[in-house]
Write a protein that binds this DNA or RNA. Structure first.
Lengths: 210, 210
DNA sequence: TACGGTACTGTACCGATGGTACAGTTTTTG
DNA sequence: CAAAAACTGTACCATCGGTACAGTACCGTA
């Protein structure tokens, strides 16, 4: 996903390679049918090597999810920062952010590979309580972040219709998660960015009326 | 799920029971980790009994998906019919439909159990080409049906902003699929109906401006 | 250059699972 | 009551997650 800035030790490199392979497989087959044998064969290591890095499969699941969410926050931080540099106004900054977000999703060469969190939610019984709580917390954080922006907007702009800002914040997560599914199912990578722009149009209509 | 109107033969009853148990498990653990042993033990039959009804596991997957989509069309047919009886105007009929849809989703006692199609999309490599094509086709049909309504609306109402009606149609599927995930993850059954109403607010704003 | 940790490999094993094959038996239905 | 439908019983196989543990190659540091 991202560009490595710091050099990784050999062990860390292998760990990352295992996780890259595993994540790709999990997003296509689900966690349960992603076999350890398959991962190690693709990574060119032995089973002992795998269990050197991860206590068990649930430990791998947890590490994958942690890395995924960390990466997501970084991306959103970056996009919000970029948007804030382009406009001081909270509404316009948010609209710019949404445009940047849509562009980023549209630039993915093979379309979005799938949201790991969503994948986990559809297999929640496979994971430990700890991992399940991580998906919940992930969605809560998204809500809080988007809600924070919407609060700033609502302080300056009068909404054209009565809206619950938590719902409006959640809607971005929902549209994105749902659009990823549709994008994959319909084999249309451009569907995801277009849906983000639909949400953008909604926000615009609510606060600007056009 | 639905009320049985016609009597089922004993074999059909068993088949339905197997599928009920399987669907529940699939939505919580994914298809791969839904074991046949677990299904038959809960259904009170033997493994041979299972394979009397289904050629193999993929055959079960296909039957589950077929039944699920058939049921969905019936529900939407019913809701559209109800809405059409309450208003002749395409926009108001659609808005009523969305309200009825939201209410129905809000009335599910334990929240929405999960969308089987979405679950399949996140495990597409597990299934035969035929089954994967069924998820694609399912989403295409939804698009066509909603798009059809939006076309009728656009013929009478001037949209306040430029919108692509296919995107707008897809957005309902996306919001619903995404909201189901959020609902499950945040353990909040009311999130799904609220998100449907968000979409409703968007449609209203686009065509009515309020 | 010796040392100690890091990062593995190799081998052997276990219980559970998905799936296949097929013969035999009970139950339902026309 | 006979045929078809709806199963049961048994045996078997490869794969999978996981455990246990001994051995080894490499790598930075004192």
């Amino acid at each position: 996903m991202g560009v490595q800035t710091q050099t990784l030790s050999k062990g860390e490199q292998t760990r990352e390679r295992i996780m890259d392979i595993a994540q790709d497989a999990v997003l296509h087959k689900g966690f349960a049918s992603t076999s350890i044998d398959e991962i190690i064969s693709e990574a060119g290591i032995t089973k002992s090597g795998f269990f050197y890095h991860f206590r068990d499969k649930n430990d791998l699941a947890k590490a994958l999810l942690q890395r995924y969410t960390d990466e997501e926050w970084k991306v959103f931080d970056q996009l919000f920062k970029q948007a804030d540099e382009l406009s001081e106004d909270p509404l316009h900054s948010f609209l710019i952010f949404l445009k940047l977000f849509a562009d980023l999703m549209g630039d993915l060469p093979n379309g979005h590979p799938g949201c790991l969190i969503a994948s986990y939610v559809y297999q929640d019984f496979l994971f430990s309580r700890e991992v399940r709580d991580m998906t919940t917390e992930g969605h809560r954080i998204w809500r809080r972040r988007f809600r924070d922006r919407l609060d700033q907007i609502a302080a300056r702009y009068l909404a054209r219709v009565e809206v619950n800002l938590d719902d409006m914040a959640d809607m971005l997560s929902a549209v994105a998660d749902g659009a990823i599914i549709l994008s994959k199912s319909l084999h249309d990578p451009s569907l995801l960015p277009r849906q983000i722009l639909q949400y953008r149009a909604y926000v615009r209509l609510v606060f600007l009326g056009n």
